[in-house]
Design a protein around this nucleic acid. Structure first.
Length: 574
DNA sequence: GCCGTTTTCGGCCCGACTGTTTTCAGTCG
């Protein structure tokens, strides 16, 4: 069982108990546990096997009750209370509650009065006007629920970070033109640079909000207004993403920015810490009794509860608060630390630019070096190189390297890892390169033990320097292949092989959690763009975002090394 | 159900918007 399967059980349990009007703190406790389980880097099953019930109870938000439920689930594969509740509510009931505008109270009301137990039935009843007239239900509420049903059909889940960021920035740019706007900041999961985004949160500092709200709700890219108030409005963009806008005064900038950036659990923790200090924290600031005392900047917010400044990417309740208390937060990697890009393609295989064009573009970015790493023969779809072409290509890189000044072009290739773990080119060819990237491009559906063996064997090859996109996932398109990532990290450490953090917004592979795992084991990460055009060299920022979410520092990054240090490490394995 | 340098019992984050309520419940973030 995956952690997400366990989490699902507790998310659902919370929902069921809420429907049954259980104690709301109990409901919240289940949700907190589900949340924490989702963000664990280690599998619950593994934790239980290693340390039993005690180890489970050490996870924040998990006590005796939930630990026992996890144990039961591991032992028997199911949880009786969960199964019982599932039978009590019809299938389709949860999607009813998840319809925007509906909540547990309304869902139960409609179920009891009208036997509505699915979203389809809800839509039908609303269209027939059967909802209005029930207690607390009028024509408007019925209309809203219908809108919610439609919205759910339209909003296609989550958006890739780059797409969401582009859209949010476009909205912010429009609002910035208004003279009332003093400051504007994109907050929420966008500011935390999560790999996928549910909705965008924009914070505006202004004294008067009326014009701003008017402009916001009438933007050309707006498709629907969800709510429109004095300090808070929400719209849905034509591309399907929801955007929330909040307007506050300047003296609340810090507390509002902090609040709208989240994550939720992190916020709650800070508010609890404020209470312990006799203060109340909201988006408007810290209050002693009813008197405002602080909140002008985020730094001030953290300082007031005794913490050093926590960068947005770390605010995920993954130990950042404890680290800030001890003054032990990492000094996160930044764009300026990156000295080169070690994974890119040219027209020799499936890229669009020449070696020289890639080198010139990289030079403009201020890089000290790049590596040209075209595909090898097995990746036929990319016109991969056989031995003969590879040798010719390496010579061509030498030629370009002599020709251009101010940047070093390293000779490399992205070599396929064959299903049996052998490399797609013989060692006699690999040894003529400065850098070898190994990658899985075929047979994704192997069983976990086979895939793990396959990759470990590649890492043991003394010419392999980097494992490209280590789990092979394409966000929203293809699941990661099954591989024991902890073993991969351990062997990467042993063999002095770096792991790639592929910067493409659809890959971001390794992900944040695994990056942190690799860091803790002392494995170097190479943040690469895997560019197929000169433009794509700019994708580096997404890799850096994810690296920061993984607590990575300059010293953890292979391509933050100067050229001579890099070369030393590349050849140290041979 | 979880949790504890104020606690093993009694707390548990805080506020905006909407609709239907005539003072507030429900939903959302």
């Amino acid at each position: 069982m995956e952690n997400s399967d366990f989490a699902k059980i507790f998310w659902d349990l919370a929902e069921f108990l809420e429907l049954k009007n259980e104690n709301r703190f109990k409901v919240a406790a289940y949700r907190k546990a589900a949340q924490n389980i989702e963000s664990l880097s280690e599998n619950l099953g593994t934790i239980y096997k290693a340390g039993g019930l005690k180890a489970l109870e050490e996870i924040p938000g998990i006590g005796q009750g939930i630990a026992t439920k996890i144990e039961k689930t591991i032992k028997s594969g199911k949880l009786d209370v969960y199964e019982k509740l599932r039978k009590e509510f019809p299938r389709g009931f949860l999607e009813l509650v998840e319809t925007p505008g509906m909540g547990p109270k309304t869902a139960m009301l409609l179920y009891k009065k009208l036997k509505i137990d699915s979203r389809a039935k809800l839509e039908k009843a609303a269209k027939e006007g059967k909802l209005q007239g029930l207690p607390g239900m009028g024509a408007k509420k019925e209309e809203n629920i219908l809108k919610g049903v439609e919205l759910k059909k339209k909003i296609s889940g989550r958006f890739l970070l780059n797409a969401a960021l582009d859209q949010a920035e476009a909205v912010a740019k429009e609002l910035e033109k208004l003279k009332e706007v003093e400051k504007i900041l994109i907050c929420g999961s966008l500011r935390r640079r999560k790999e996928t985004i549910g909705d965008a949160d924009i914070l505006v500092i202004a004294k008067r909000s009326k014009n701003i709200m008017q402009r916001f709700t009438s933007l050309p890219q707006a498709q629907r207004i969800l709510v429109k108030g004095e300090t808070k409005s929400s719209i849905v963009l034509k591309m399907g993403m929801q955007v929330d806008l909040r307007v506050v005064e300047d003296k609340s900038f810090g507390s509002a920015a902090h609040y709208f950036t989240g994550c939720k659990a992190h916020n709650i923790k800070l508010r609890e810490m404020a209470i312990k200090k006799g203060l109340k924290l909201s988006e408007y600031g810290f209050f002693k009794k009813d008197k405002w005392v602080a909140g002008r900047t985020e730094k001030e917010v953290f300082k007031t509860v005794g913490l050093t400044y926590i960068p947005p990417e770390l605010r995920e309740m993954r130990g950042e608060i404890e680290a800030a208390q001890k003054g032990k937060l990492p000094k996160l990697i930044e764009s300026k630390d990156i000295k080169g890009d070690l994974h890119m393609h040219t027209i020799e295989t499936d890229g669009s630019n020449t070696i020289e064009q890639m080198a010139q573009a990289a030079k403009k970015l201020g890089y000290e070096y790049i590596a040209i790493t075209d595909h090898t023969q097995s990746t036929r779809i990319a016109h991969g190189m056989d031995e003969k072409r590879t040798l010719k290509h390496l010579k061509e890189i030498d030629r370009v390297n002599k020709k251009i000044q101010g940047i070093r072009v390293l000779k490399g290739a992205e070599v396929d890892i064959l299903p049996d773990g052998r490399m797609d080119l013989p060692d006699s060819i690999l040894k003529q390169m400065d850098l070898v990237i190994a990658a899985v491009h075929s047979n994704f559906k192997m069983p976990e033990d086979q895939m793990t063996r396959r990759i470990l064997k590649a890492l043991e090859n003394k010419y392999v320097n980097i494992l490209a996109h280590p789990t092979g996932r394409l966000i929203g398109e293809r699941e990661a292949y099954k591989v024991d990532i902890e073993k991969v990290i351990a062997i990467a450490k042993k063999t002095k092989t770096a792991l790639e953090l592929n910067s493409h917004p659809q890959r971001l592979d390794l992900n944040d959690v695994n990056c942190r795992l690799a860091k803790d084991q002392g494995v170097l990460i190479s943040i690469n763009t895997d560019s197929h055009t000169t433009d794509q060299l700019n994708l580096m920022k997404y890799g850096i975002f994810t690296a920061r979410r993984g607590w990575l520092e300059k010293k953890n990054i292979l391509n933050a090394l100067t050229l001579d240090k890099l070369l030393k490490i590349l050849f140290a394995k041979r």
